[in-house]
Every structure is written in structure tokens, then in C-alpha cells.
């Protein structure tokens, strides 16, 4: 389970941002964008974040997770599509030569402080 290191990563990024802005407030909410294909399990992330955030400015923060669907582009015919299965096959030309446009990201979009 690497949700633990991701939870530590989130806290690290936010602490750096707070430091940069000389912000002393407490973080209320963290807005994340997590790709469908990032292999991140939200439940495990929430659990890890719970104990990683203790005694940090993120201690009381709520994680707001927005899932980003997987979007692909066929490299053969150029069609954009949202695959229904884990194997990506172009619905039009049936090619397997597919580029992933989104769905692999793990972004901190923003956070809210008080």
C-alpha cells in the first residue's frame, strides 16, 4: 500500500505552500484530483492521512477527492473515448495503440485555510 507515502507527500506539499506564504492558519479542506488509473485507494488514503496529519497544520483537514475519469485517444484513427474496461481498444477502428489523455494523475488542486 503506497497510500501512506502519498499521504505524507500531500502534507509535505501543503506545508511547503504554507511556509512560502508564511501562513499560520489551520487547513480545513484539501481538494484532490485522483485519476481512475492512479491505483490509489481513497479509503486507504483517508486512513493514512488520518495518522500522518497528526500534529501538523493539516490535522483537522478534510480530504475532498474528485475522481478523474480515464480518457484515451486512439493513435490510429484519432478518436477520443472513455474506455469501459482496463484493456483499451478503440471503439471505432479496434486498434490497441492508445494514448492515455487523463486518469493517471494525483493532483492537489487546492486547499482551504482558516
Amino acid at each position: 500500500m503506497h497510500e501512506l507515502s502519498l499521504a505524507q507527500g500531500i502534507i509535505q506539499v501543503i506545508e511547503e505552500e504554507l511556509e512560502k506564504r508564511k501562513e499560520k492558519g489551520t487547513v480545513q479542506k484539501i481538494n484532490l484530483r485522483i485519476g481512475q488509473l492512479s491505483c490509489v485507494e481513497p479509503e486507504a488514503l483517508l486512513f493514512s492521512f488520518g495518522f500522518c496529519s497528526k500534529e501538523t497544520q493539516c490535522e483537522n483537514a478534510v480530504l475532498n477527492i474528485e475522481k478523474v475519469p480515464l480518457a484515451c485517444e486512439c493513435q490510429n484513427c484519432g478518436k477520443n473515448f472513455l474506455p469501459k474496461e482496463a484493456i483499451f481498444i478503440c471503439p471505432d477502428c479496434k486498434s490497441c495503440r492508445i494514448k492515455i489523455l487523463s486518469g493517471e494523475e494525483f493532483y492537489i488542486d487546492s486547499f482551504e485555510i482558516e
Binding site: I10, E17, E23, E105
Partner: peptide, 13 residues
């Protein structure tokens, strides 16, 4: 106050 970050957590790696 809302602060935009737009940072990829995996970017550090």
C-alpha cells in the same frame, strides 16, 4: 481562504 496548488504529488518522485 482557498489556495490553488495544482501540484502533482507524484512529481516529487
Amino acid at each position: 481562504m482557498k489556495i490553488k496548488v495544482l501540484k502533482d504529488v507524484l512529481k516529487a518522485n
